[in-house]
């Protein structure tokens, strides 16, 4: 799949006393973007059912986030997500948060799949691999 986009808005709960959205909210918005990208790619397998049926959890291995600007209360924002590279046990997801056409944050996210009980890595499920595409 190619670029996936969600839109949301900056709420009071996202802001701090400087009037800006917090770093935690940037990370949370990025997670919402990744989750909705997965939901779009695999509409028949919600994350909760994947964990219940196959005992597989998605986990984040690493994130690099570069903040390029600020957003404030009531600003509308867009989160764009795409799969950069799929490996056997992990994948790289690129993400960009923008507001009014200005990029405010860029992300490189490494995600992996683990067994819910043992917490050991498992191969990326074939359904995910096919649905997400990316460079293999």
């Amino acid at each position: 799949m190619s670029m996936f986009r969600i839109e949301t808005r900056v709420y009071f709960s996202d802001t701090d006393a400087t009037g800006r959205a917090s770093w935690k909210s940037l990370f949370d918005w990025a997670e919402h973007g990744r989750t909705e990208m997965l939901r779009e790619a695999l509409p028949e397998i919600p994350q909760s059912e994947l964990a219940a049926a196959d005992g597989i959890l998605t986990v984040i291995k690493s994130i690099n986030c570069r903040k390029l600007g600020d957003v404030h209360l009531d600003d509308s924002i867009a989160v764009e997500s795409w799969v950069g590279k799929i490996q056997r046990f992990s994948c790289i997801i690129g993400q960009r948060i923008s507001s009014n056409g200005n990029v405010i944050a860029e992300f490189d996210v490494k995600a992996a799949f683990i067994d819910r009980v043992s917490k050991h890595p498992v191969l990326i499920p074939e359904a995910f691999r096919k649905a997400l595409g990316g460079d293999i």
Binding site: T18, W23, K24, V59, I60, K61, S62, I63, N64, C65, R66, K67
Partner: peptide, 27 residues
């Protein structure tokens, strides 16, 4: 972020913030 705030408090710098421009995290 809380740890950074307490770090500044430890050296007597309150009402200050180490304002992040880039964060890399490995879990």
């Amino acid at each position: 972020e809380r740890a950074r705030a307490e770090m500044l408090r430890d050296i007597g710098m309150e009402r200050m913030v180490l304002d992040a421009e880039e964060i890399s995290v490995e879990y």
